[in-house]
Simulated assay, not measured.
Amino acid sequence: MEQKEYEEISEPGAAPYGNFINYYTFNPPEKRVSLIPEQLLHQLFGGREHERQLLGLDVGCNSGDLTVALYRHLIGLNQNVKNEMGYANGIEMSLLGCDIDSRLIQRATESNPFPAGISYSVLNIMDASSRKSILEAYLSQYKRSHFDVCFCMSLTMWIHLNHGDSGLLEFLSVVSGLCNILLVEPQPWKCYRSAARRLRKLGKSTFDHFKTLAIKGDIADKITHFLTTACDMELLEILGNTCWDRSLLLFRKRISTKPFCVADEQS
């Protein structure tokens, strides 16, 4: 990678999909993970983790730092433990991290301390064909049709800015349909304005959809409304707010419905 290219994608906000290289130097994973209860999987799955392996999906994983932190935290691994098989504290879990940027996925793969428990794949989650083939291939390894839990951490803004209002709603429909439990960390509206401003300062064109977005204001509230009214999800809890004033919203598929199967998607 040329030095100029590296500097451009290292600049906060310069990458159009939020795929900047040094993201976790200014938004450390520990600050978000600390808001998640250590016994969350026990609480959510009521002992069923002893019966089968839990599957997780981290959408927009960047270089994998948060993926690893989530994995450690949720299965109860000590920070000094490496190369475990994804089983600790009575929980067995496999986690797939995906990102649109192949360079970030390469970095995540090369630095992965848990290759038996964490996998990474290049994926544009908004590409239905790629989404179907990649996620279906992963799930088929476990003879499963959906994930137990899906993480969407500081991702919704980038989907929204690049795909507009309809794209955001499509994204929420897709990810909520892939899992039983969904954890979303939406960026507030002030982050949208900051991202557009930083892009302009770098002499780049602003996001195509920014000026035409109708979904604005209290983004977390609007995402919650859509998930609970159009996606058969219920809001279990707001786990807290990060130092950047981003809420961690925990949703669960309503008992009367079942998750959407990846295999059911149209080619």
Rank of each mutant, 00 (worst) to 15 (best):
K4I: 04
D148E: 11
I118S: 06
I75A: 00
T206N: 14
C98R: 01
M93F: 06
A128Y: 08
N89V: 03
T224S: 12
G177L: 06
E49I: 08
M153W: 05
M126P: 00
Q3N: 12
H225P: 06
E51F: 13
K211M: 08
D58P: 08
E30L: 07
F114S: 02
K201A: 10
M157D: 02
S94C: 11
F171S: 04
K31I: 09
D165T: 12
R107W: 07
L227T: 04
W158N: 10
S256I: 07
G18Y: 09
M157W: 11
G90S: 06
G117S: 05
L57F: 09
S166E: 11
C261V: 12
N62L: 10
L236V: 13
H225K: 14
G64V: 00
I9M: 07
S173Y: 06
D245S: 15
P113I: 04
A214K: 15
N241S: 10
L178H: 03
N124W: 02
C191E: 13
I134M: 11
Y142G: 03
E265F: 09
D208P: 11
G117A: 13
F226K: 05
N78T: 10
M1Q: 12
Y192R: 14
A196R: 09
A137E: 14
E51T: 14
Y6T: 02
L155E: 07
D221V: 12
S10Q: 08
F226H: 15
C243A: 15
D101S: 14
C150A: 14
S34H: 05
P186C: 11
L161Y: 01
L55C: 05
N124R: 07
L248I: 04
N83L: 11
K253T: 12
N27T: 12
G86F: 04
G117C: 02
E2W: 06
L66C: 05
G18R: 06
P113E: 00
T67D: 03
V122G: 00
L54S: 07
S247P: 01
N22C: 07
P188L: 13
L172I: 10
R107S: 07
L66E: 02
E185A: 15
F207S: 05
Q141G: 13
D65H: 15
F26R: 12
K204V: 00
R48P: 03
L182Q: 04
F260G: 08
